[in-house]
């Protein structure tokens, strides 16, 4: 066991992949700079050289497309988008190309590309430096989407993503980079075996988080436990393809569901989880209507007081749990 932060855990995954898998290379903006991606890739260019750690022009679409192309030729590229907002230029490479090639070519071509997108918000960064668009991508068949919440997943899901033969979008969140955890040794695990995971057991309510909101859920659950309220916390981890049955089974036990998602409300991930549970739960098993806590349907503001109103925290989760418990 060694105490590792979420950010350092990502770097451990890169080191592991680059050491053990010669077909892995990394491409993206700012990879030779000190500040683009926090502490998650420090000095990788010096360790592995500029040909495996390729800093690139600001050409999101061509760089992502090039990674898709290289992945069709035996490589396992990782594309890094230091902010998810800029990745929208690469929608064609992700949605029309990477996600489709297996199906539309009859299962003969598999773009084994990993796209790492970073959610980087707060600090008055505003509407185009803050977005969490995971739900958009989870909508696309053929594109696997993972969001690690814990340091262990930050490391292990990146390794599983890169070793997967399908295109994977791996989304990490800078608000998690300082979270520390003891990590066991690395064991490679096929991504298709990964899914939602219960991080804390409890019988009164099921609390589902994704990425950073999972951490808030854990903090809220801990506070509630000191008041004698036991809630179950499930980390979604794999958004697409979605396996809702861990969550459904939990809600069968608790009868109450609160989904907490740091994305927008309309057509978002929280709505999808509630729909899956509603469809799969026998009538009458819910003690309360399910609820979701999300960002308001508005772009991120810049001004600090508006920012405080825009993002929710532990206290809003506790409030929502108490409301559901009546």
């Amino acid at each position: 066991m060694n105490r590792t932060s979420y950010g350092a855990a990502i770097r451990e995954a890169f080191v592991y992949l680059l050491d053990h898998h010669p077909e892995v290379f990394v491409i993206g903006q700012g990879l030779w700079a000190k500040w683009y991606v926090g502490n998650t890739m420090t000095d990788l260019d010096k360790l592995y050289g500029p040909e495996r750690i390729m800093d690139s022009p600001v050409s999101e679409q061509a760089c992502t497309g090039a990674a898709v192309g290289a992945s069709l030729c035996g490589y396992r590229p990782i594309v890094v988008h230091p902010r998810m907002d800029f990745m929208l230029y690469a929608m064609d490479a992700l949605v029309n190309q990477a996600a489709k090639w297996s199906h539309m070519l009859g299962g003969q071509a598999h773009p084994a590309v990993t796209v790492r997108a970073i959610i980087n918000r707060g600090g008055e960064q505003g509407a185009q430096h803050s977005q969490a668009l995971h739900a958009w991508f989870a909508h696309v068949p053929g594109l696997r989407v993972v969001m690690p919440a814990t340091p262990r997943d930050a490391r292990d899901l990146l390794i599983s993503a890169v070793l997967c033969d399908d295109p994977v979008l791996y989304i990490d969140d800078r608000w998690l980079y300082e979270w520390e955890e003891d990590l066991p040794p690395i064991v490679e695990s096929p991504l298709e075996r990964e899914g939602p995971r219960i991080l804390r057991s409890g019988g009164e309510l099921t609390l589902v988080g994704v990425g950073y909101s999972t951490r808030l859920c854990l903090q809220a659950a801990q506070s509630l436990a000191t008041k004698g309220i036991q809630v179950e916390v499930i980390d979604l981890r794999v958004l697409n393809p979605l396996d809702p049955f861990t969550i459904v089974a939990s809600v069968k036990r608790t009868g109450r569901l609160l989904v907490v998602d740091g994305g927008w409300r309309t057509c978002g991930m929280a709505g999808e989880i509630i729909a899956c549970v509603s469809e799969n739960l026998p009538l009458g098993m819910l003690k309360q209507s399910p609820r979701r806590l999300t960002l308001p349907d508005a772009p991120a503001p810049t001004s600090a007081p508006l920012e405080r109103a825009y993002y929710f925290g532990e206290s809003e989760i506790i409030q929502a749990v108490r409301a559901l418990l009546g």
């Binding site: 290379f25 040909e51 679409q61 061509a62 760089c63 992502t64 497309g65 090039a66 990674a67 898709v68 192309g69 290289a70 992945s71 069709l72 030729c73 035996g74 490589y75 590229p77 064609d92 490479a93 029309n96 190309q97 090639w101 070519l105 071509a109």
Partner: peptide
């Protein structure tokens, strides 16, 4: 022939990546 698609110019960056792979090879 690694693939053809109707999204105009869609495969051009893919070909660039395939060339990058060829250079690495």
């Amino acid at each position: 022939l690694l693939g053809t698609v109707p999204i105009v110019a869609g495969t051009v960056p893919l070909a660039v990546g395939a060339a990058l792979a060829a250079k690495k090879d």
